[in-house]
Amino acid sequence: MALDAATRTIVRDGIAVGVATGAYGISFGAISVASGLDVWQSCALSLLVFTGASQFALVGVIGSGGNPMLGALSGLLLGTRNTLYGLKVAPMVEWPGRRRAAAAHILIDESTAMTLTRTTRAHARAGFLSTGLSVFVLWNLATLAGAIAGDSLGDPRTYGLDAAVGGAFLGLLWPRLDSVRNRVAALLGAALALSLVPVTPAGVPVLAAGVVAFGLGLIGREEVAAS
C-alpha cells in the first residue's frame, strides 16, 4: 500500500520522536547499572517493562537499597497512567484481538501523544505504530549501549550518575507541573515521602506518597469542575 503525503509526514514525525526519546535510553542504561543491576537485567527492563518512568522508579528504589519488589510496586503504580492512555487510544486505532494485544506493549507517553491528535483511523494507526516501534527499537539499543558504558565507568558517583537519577525524575515530572493542583500534589508527595524516610525501609516512602494522590482525588471535585 502506497502511503499518502499526510501519512508519510506522520511516520516521519513518529520516527523523529523515537530518535529523541531513544537517546535518553542511554541515561537509563547507565543509571540502571549504577544502581546495582547488571547489563542483562537493565536490558530486560527496557524490553519487558518498556515504560520509562516505571523503569527509572524500579532501579531508583534498588539503588537506594530498597527491596526490589517495592521497586516493582512503584513501577506498577506509575504504569497505571498507561491504562488511562489505552482508554483514549483504543477507540482511535480500533485494532481487534491479537493486534490489540501486540499494540498494547508499545502503549506509552510518546505513542499516545502522537496518536490522539489524529483525525482518521489510518492516521491514528500510523502515528501510534511509527512512534511506538521506533521508540521501542531505539530505547532498547540505547539501554544496551548505556548499560555497557556505565558498567565500564567504575564508581558512578565520580561521574555524578547518582545525581542524574534525581534530574531524570524531575525531567519526567516537569511537564506535569502545569496546574496549581498538580504542584500542590507534588509538594505534598515529596514532603510525605521525606518524612517517612527515617522511620520506614527504603522503597516504602515513595509508595506511601501514593496516598496523597488518593486523598486529593477524594477532595478535588470543585477544582476539576472549575477548570
Partner: peptide, 11 residues
C-alpha cells in the same frame, strides 16, 4: 505527579 515528586525528593 505524586510518585515522581516523591522519587525526586528521595533520590
Amino acid at each position: 505527579v505524586v510518585l515522581l515528586a516523591a522519587l525526586v525528593a528521595v533520590q
